[in-house]
Simulated assay, not measured.
Amino acid sequence: MKLDVAGVLRDAWAMAKRDVEVLVGVAGLFLFVPDLAQAMYVALPPDLPDFGDEAAADLWLKQIGIWSQHYELLVIVLGLLSLFGTLALFLLYADRARPTVAGALARGGALLPHYLLLALIVTVPVSIGAVLVFPGLYLKGRLMPVAPVFVAERPIGVFAAWHRSFALTRGNGLVLMGLAFVPLLGGRLIALPFALLGKALDGAPMANPVMAALLDAGMAGGHTIGTVAAVLIEIALYRRLSNGI
């Protein structure tokens, strides 16, 4: 079956326009705020040392240990909040029970451990494949419907959801590589000017808390838009593929 990519994007855009208030509320609280908090309160981890420099490697291990002591728990909590927010969005659109926002948040709490496992079995192989670029993008494209499958076709195991996603996307792998890249690129392009401005100021924002907060908010906003776009595109894709459109 030939996939109508333009139709998928139209469907996603229609959902965004129709539900803008709900999306702003859920994504603002559970995606934007954790991203902004991480930018403001979590220092960047130390850079990897040069390969083969044993002394630098030892120093890096000590530095990363200190960094972990200070920030690891906060990073985990913020990451779980973001994951919960993403799951809530999938529940709002893909759950067959058609929950309200409050209902989606309640169901999300119960499903979060299983969704965390699903996220891991998607993220880890995609990240490994991304080292070679093409395999990572291809795998990401084939797994685009996996979260909607997990929510809409419950009870279904995480590995069964993986298999179902591959079955749905059979014959459209190359097209979905490009589609998977759209929200990622869009979100990063929105955040990019704020990141570049921060680098251009060469640390000056730290002397001006208002400027620093504005730059961090701009980057967090770009990341949030990218995540919401990815969720809506994946929902629209799943609906078309599962209905044979």
Rank of each mutant, 00 (worst) to 15 (best):
T123G: 04
D35Q: 12
P45V: 11
L78C: 00
M177G: 04
V5Y: 01
L197W: 03
H163Y: 09
V22S: 01
D95P: 03
G226F: 03
A88G: 01
R10W: 08
A152I: 02
A160N: 03
D4A: 09
Y71N: 05
G129C: 01
H223K: 08
Q38K: 09
L9T: 00
R239I: 09
V8W: 01
T227K: 12
F150T: 00
L36H: 06
A102Y: 09
E234F: 11
G221D: 00
L120N: 03
E153R: 04
F51N: 13
L120M: 09
N172I: 06
L48N: 13
A217H: 05
I156V: 12
L105D: 03
K17H: 14
P113V: 11
F90K: 02
G157D: 01
D53L: 08
R170N: 09
V24R: 07
E234G: 08
V75K: 11
L143G: 08
V133Y: 07
K140A: 15
I64T: 10
M219A: 02
L118M: 11
S82E: 04
H223D: 14
A97T: 11
L92M: 00
I225W: 04
V231D: 02
A213G: 06
L214F: 05
T86N: 07
L73K: 15
F32Y: 05
I235F: 08
L192W: 11
V20P: 06
D202Y: 13
R164W: 04
W162Q: 06
V101I: 01
A6C: 10
N243H: 13
L81Q: 02
G109C: 00
G171H: 02
S242F: 12
M177C: 14
P45R: 00
D47W: 07
L168A: 01
E72K: 12
D58V: 15
S82K: 09
